[in-house]
Amino acid sequence: MLKNKLFIICFFVALNLLAQVNNDIYSLENRVNFANHLYKETDYLRAIDEYKIILQNVENDTIRFRFANSFLKLNRFDEASENFKTLFFTSLSNEAKLFYFKSNFLKNDFKLFRKLVENKVYLPEKFYNEVNKLNSISYFLDNEILPQQGILLNPFEDSLQTKLYLFYQLKKNPPSKNPIQAAIFSSLIPGAGKIYTGELSDGIISFIATTVSLYLSINNFQNNHQFRGWVFAGISSLFYAGNIYGSYISAKKFNDESKNKVQNEIESFFKQRNYFLPQIEF
């Protein structure tokens, strides 16, 4: 009889204890739920704190992946790649390797990224082509010499080849104006160099300013106004020399702007398409 009583008491106490553990807001299970909620809410900073405590008590691949991905979402690439690295020999190996490469790619240290790809140590079998695409994109995004067109474009689908070929050509030969040529044009006809670089109004103003001051100088000399003649000759020379220098600078500016424009277009193209990476969430 007493034994039965003891059993019943034990049973209810155990049930009670179990219920309490579940009610404990800071229990491991509740922490996981809360951390996942923060992660879904994109509050990655707080999700990291929660995941960190969880991972101190238990190792779980999905949680580790989310932990690493939270760092990635916050642009903390070093911490992200370190954590993805710890998943290389787990069931999430392929995904972790891909995200490891993604973390290193987003660091913008493309030389280092390409070295990692060349080493082939951590290349994910399942996402081999995605990493190759990242490798090609890295050439589009930095200022290194572009490899052969075929090597660069091969990882991409046929539907993208035309667009990428255009980017390849633009990157290799962006629209440019020769600064020396612009300077020579302006030395022959004041303002011509500016017009050559696309600055029409500047070119016309330069032409008028130089020729008018030259005319005034000649006119004053002819009328024996030596002092004024020299003043206008000086002004005219300044306009003339300034216009040549301005044309040279204008061509350089044109080249820089055109290079930046091409680069921005390429960058936004790849960024909008998430660098052709698959959406992976656990």
Binding site: V13, N16, D24, I25
Partner: peptide, 28 residues
């Protein structure tokens, strides 16, 4: 037997107290 049962109950109460749960009120 009664002594054992009393000791056991005492232990359970102790355990219950040690298994302190954190409630919403406390977190708040």
């Amino acid at each position: 037997m009664r002594i054992i049962l009393t000791k056991f109950l005492f232990l359970i109460i102790l355990l219950e107290n040690n298994f302190a749960q954190t409630s919403i009120e406390e977190v708040y």
